[in-house]
């Protein structure tokens, strides 16, 4: 059962062999003990950056309409 659970926690992704070799060289002497731990770290950083970008997205036309609706409900706009 435990093995089954562990299997569900992880999945396998494929990257080009040459890239994998480059990464292995890069992580030598660092705190990363495997290709997987480094790839996980990098992907987390990328995803986190993208999420922050989403939060920083510009004030859109849709936002504008939502604000106006709320201002009307609060009596600040006719």
């Amino acid at each position: 059962m435990t093995e089954e659970k562990d299997e569900k926690k992880y999945t396998t992704i494929s990257i080009p062999f040459q890239l994998a070799e480059k990464i292995k060289k890069r992580i030598e002497g660092t705190g990363f003990h495997s290709l997987s731990s480094y790839a996980t770290y990098v992907l987390r950083e990328v995803i986190s950056g993208m999420e922050n970008e989403d939060e920083d997205e510009a004030f859109s036309k849709e936002d504008e309409e939502k604000v106006k609706d709320r201002l009307r409900a609060l009596g600040y706009l006719d």
């Binding site: 939060e55 997205e57 510009a58 004030f59 936002d63 939502k66 604000v67 709320r70």
Partner: peptide, 11 residues
């Protein structure tokens, strides 16, 4: 709504 007003405030 929260997202919208956070964006408005920032802008």
């Amino acid at each position: 709504t929260k997202k919208t007003f956070v964006k408005l405030n920032k802008m």
